[in-house]
């Protein structure tokens, strides 16, 4: 278990996403709004709680940032005007930039996907899962 300290990721997150997780009062409206929670291991409001507590390692291992579809519904509903979609992007980027490299690349596509998927889908996926 990572120690409960202000982590590096937390500091970078504040700077680059313009979001301060400590503003969140854990009402969980974001989680109620999120359309893809069924596939997440941490709910959106739990991600913020982990950020507040500086549980960086746990966040880097979580499936949730990769399930987030950047639909911006959480941000639209948050009574504290926090943009959780930006924070999810921050966690993805922290991983893509420093740790494991790309999550998804052209080699992961099946040939029938390549012939069917719209260009927009491919560009979006590469932008989100690839550096």
């Amino acid at each position: 278990m990572a120690s409960i300290t202000k982590s590096r990721m937390l500091e970078e997150m504040k700077l680059q996403s313009g979001q301060d997780p400590s503003c969140c009062y854990q009402c969980a409206k974001c989680s109620a709004a999120c359309p893809v929670t069924a596939a997440m291991d941490l709910l959106p409001h739990q991600v913020i709680r982990y950020l507040q507590l500086g549980l960086e390692e746990e966040l880097l291992e979580s499936r949730t940032p990769w399930i987030c579809a950047s639909c911006f519904t959480c941000a639209a509903r948050c009574p504290r005007d926090l943009d959780l979609a930006r924070m999810m992007e921050g966690i993805r980027l922290a991983i893509l930039r420093r740790r494991e490299g790309n999550k998804f690349g052209p080699a992961d596509l099946a040939p029938e996907q390549l012939s069917k998927l719209p260009q927009q889908a491919l560009v979006s996926a590469f932008r989100k899962y690839n550096k």
Binding site: V36, A121, K128
Partner: peptide, 13 residues
């Protein structure tokens, strides 16, 4: 949301 680019990476979602 329809799932956006998750149809590429997480089709079940």
């Amino acid at each position: 949301c329809c799932g956006a680019y998750l149809s590429v990476t997480e089709e079940n979602v």
